[in-house]
Nucleic acid binder design. Structure first.
Length: 472
DNA sequence: ATGTTC
């Protein structure tokens, strides 16, 4: 494939491909690791007409149809929406709750083990379909997001305000076209973690000296214990995504639209298919934000069981990295797809939720198990990438390849098993989650260095893992 | 990612 390479400044590359240009944000070390296949995928996606902008963050890696780590933008008037650029885990995202605890309060392994056990009790991880909240009407939640939750599950106003978006518009006319089993399968899944890379981690903060004012404004302090949650829309989003991908695939055939990659799926935003997809996607975003809310509710219950009923875990922020959002840029309405990309708005940007208007909002970036996660804040310069930064370390090896390349011993070493600083895990057997070991991921510090060096965002706090709860 | 793959 012909490629024309331009360098726009530190860590910002523009690659001219056959069907348009792709921006890549990566330092030299990470940039050198991108293989031909990720450029081929971008080129196939650039065949979708009238693309305004497309980019990779440094964590980009192969996905179905579109790389995970893609930001892709179309004008609302004449643009396209693509279920394959949203991805299969619609509404997947991050959430952080602070605690009043210092890391020394939970340094004792017995205390941390008690916390893990308590969290497992309130946040089901290894059994399917056993939510503790079967009294919640899932249909209310998918239509109204957090507004659809019963009041007894909203511990405070802050739980509704410190989120990227509490509720997404959903037209109930679509209810009669839902896949037949979706209610049955999604019922009982609210407040459950799911599997794969989803997790709940207990971490402590290292505040970045240059941004300690922002950290203080957010209520963060050095050594503070926080809880980070990574989960999505579970079966609800998966079933909708799969079904509607097939619908649009059929529509593309009837329109005579083809792509070299059969997994690149798209429809005009204004078409019946496009509008219906966005409507259904919104129901999955509502499920996803409510699911993370209920996981956090369970985590707070668990902390109360261990530390007493007065324990409060205020939400820092909840935001997603798999969706397509209508945003206003360059004086016009745009549809911004983020597939494994996180919005990071700078201070004073109008799209900030009011609570974070002055400072910009926390952008929550997970590492891999055993490595650091990050709490970041966007910079004004981030506009060059439509305020998108990375979504994590990014997978380096497939699950299969990881299981072949890495031993359980090596995994144990990376978790410092047997030492005072051991990162405790809920699973008795690490073999079961070997495909989630740090060796399966890129070096998150290189990813963060790429983002900071490109001027997209700054680090406010580094989050060091102390205990991890993973689903199966 | 997912009650998983026509």
């Amino acid at each position: 494939m012909n490629r024309i390479h331009k360098l726009h400044g530190s860590n910002h590359h523009e690659i001219g491909l056959e069907h348009g240009s792709l921006h890549v944000f990566a330092n030299d070390e990470v940039f050198g690791t991108f293989e031909d296949r990720v450029y081929e995928m971008a080129d196939n996606n650039l065949r979708i007409p009238r693309s305004v902008y497309m980019s990779y963050t440094p964590d980009a890696h192969i996905g179905i149809g579109t790389c995970i780590g893609t930001t892709a933008v179309w004008g609302l008037k004449d643009g396209f929406v693509s279920p394959s650029i949203v991805g299969v885990d619609i509404g997947c995202g991050m959430r952080v709750h602070t605690t009043p605890l210092h890391k020394r309060d939970i340094q004792d392994k017995g205390v941390r083990r008690a916390l893990i056990r308590a969290i497992e009790k309130y946040v089901p991880t290894n059994e399917r379909k056993n939510s503790n909240y079967e009294d919640i009407d899932v249909m209310e939640v998918v239509q109204h997001g957090l507004q659809g939750l019963p009041e007894r599950y909203v511990p405070g106003e802050r739980w509704l305000t410190h989120v990227e978006q509490a509720s997404f518009a959903f037209d109930p006319a679509a209810l009669e076209y839902l896949p037949p089993n979706i209610r049955k399968n999604a019922h009982g899944q609210l407040g459950t973690l799911g599997s794969g890379n989803h997790f709940c981690e207990i971490q402590y903060l290292e505040i970045a000296e240059e941004h300690k004012d922002t950290a203080a404004a957010w209520g963060l302090f050095d050594g503070q214990v926080v809880v980070m949650i990574h989960s999505g829309s579970r079966a609800w989003g998966a079933m909708l995504g799969r079904e509607y991908t097939q619908v649009i695939r059929g529509a593309m055939q009837s329109w005579g639209v083809t792509n070299p990659d059969p997994n690149v799926i798209y429809a005009p935003i204004g078409s019946t298919e496009g509008r219906t997809y966005l409507n259904l996607m919104n129901s999955a975003l509502n499920f996803a934000v409510s699911n993370r809310h209920m996981i956090a509710f369970g985590v707070q219950e668990a902390f109360r069981e261990v530390f007493g009923p007065q324990m409060e875990l205020p939400v820092l922020y909840d935001l997603m990295h798999n969706y397509a959002l209508k945003e206003f840029h360059r004086n016009q309405g745009m549809l911004v797809h983020r597939k494994g990309a996180t919005r990071a708005l700078p201070p004073k940007h109008y799209m900030n939720t009011p609570a974070y208007m002055a400072t910009g909002h926390p952008a929550l970036i997970p590492g891999s198990m055993g490595t650091s996660s990050y709490i970041m804040v966007g910079r004004d310069e981030g506009i060059k990438n439509f305020y998108s930064i990375c979504h994590g370390a990014g997978r380096l090896r497939s699950r299969r390849a990881t299981k072949q390349a890495v031993t359980v011993d090596q995994f144990e070493q990376s978790l410092k098993v047997g030492t005072e600083d051991e990162i405790l895990v809920n699973h008795r057997s690490l073999a079961a989650i070997l495909d989630e070991c740090p060796q399966a991921y890129k070096d998150v510090d290189q990813i963060i260095d790429s983002v900071v060096g490109a001027g997209l965002a700054d680090v406010v706090a580094k989050c060091r893992p102390m205990a991890a709860i993973k689903g199966l």
